[in-house]
Simulated assay, not measured.
Amino acid sequence: MTYCVAMCLDEGIVCLSDSRTNAGVDHINTFRKMTVFERAGDRVLVLMSAGNLAITQAVVSVLREHAAVQDRDSLWNAPTMFECARLVGDTIRRIYQLDADALKQFGLDFNASFILCGQIADEPPRLFNIYAAGNFIEASADTPYFQIGESKYGKPIVDRIVTRTTSLDEAAKCALISMDSTIRSNLSVGLPLDLLVYRRDELRVARHLSVDWDNPYFDMIHKEWGASLRKVFNALPNPDWTVWPGDTGTLPRIEVVAPSAARGGNGKPT
């Protein structure tokens, strides 16, 4: 499994993905889940994937092949981010037509999801969540971020912090905390991470970093976030039951009568 998060903000875009697959006690592999298509001054596209690795790699490979020859169905030639999302969706459908029946015979689902974000020319930065069926949705001002993969562990911090006006530095910090929470709770997500920061209208990647345990900032987050949570938790008062309503008997309750109470003195039912 994996975890990827992308945020489309007023200042630009922040993307973060892990690289773990096939997690187990003695079987852990590393495959990058982020692919960047960059033509400085024209476009920056970031594609992240989650799901069946063979499926997602096939989709990315086809997109790379078309980009290499710059044919009509290439991400280099798509005039808008919407058309780029449509091309990714069409490619997913092509792979489905090739592999879905064979996967079904082995009891496997066609499981793949993608995040596509970036900016083309004079368009504003845009962010899309693309599903296994090839259809997709776009981020909005109210929901400026998407997550794929093991999203449930890192979602609460993103929900509480990220808005459209969040700065890129704050968004990167939030993404890393979200990833740390996910790694803490799920063995199938792990380092190294790919962190990408893109500033609006620059049409080139500002930062693209690999993050591992030897990264001092991520190591600080890993230690300080847990300690800060415990500190805040301990600072909150315990419940004061004296200010809560008493047992009024209005809540539904099923009581089991002890056998001895339901029988007479001779042990027989009364």
Rank of each mutant, 00 (worst) to 15 (best):
L229S: 04
T182S: 00
G190C: 01
V205F: 00
K231L: 03
I183V: 13
L236F: 13
S228P: 08
V162L: 15
T182M: 00
T166R: 04
S185H: 11
W241P: 07
K223F: 03
A235R: 08
E224N: 12
D219Y: 12
Y217A: 09
R204A: 11
V205A: 06
V232G: 01
T165M: 10
D214Q: 12
L193S: 02
I183H: 08
E170T: 14
G226W: 00
P216F: 14
K231Q: 11
E170R: 14
L193F: 14
A206T: 10
E202Q: 14
F218Q: 00
S188R: 13
A227I: 05
S228C: 07
L176I: 08
L168E: 12
S185R: 15
A235P: 05
V243S: 06
W213G: 07
L191M: 14
L187G: 10
Y198A: 02
P237E: 03
S185F: 13
I161F: 07
L193M: 07
T242N: 07
L196I: 15
K231G: 02
A235V: 01
R164F: 12
I221G: 14
V205P: 03
S188T: 06
N186H: 11
K223C: 03
P237D: 01
V162N: 03
F233V: 02
L229R: 03
D201F: 09
L176W: 03
S181P: 07
F218G: 01
D240S: 03
R184C: 08
W241S: 08
S181R: 06
V243I: 15
E202R: 10
V205N: 06
G226Q: 11
S167F: 07
A227K: 12
W213K: 14
S188E: 12
M220S: 14
M220N: 13
G226S: 02
F233N: 08
V189I: 10
L191P: 10
V197G: 00
D214Y: 10
L187E: 11
Y198Q: 00
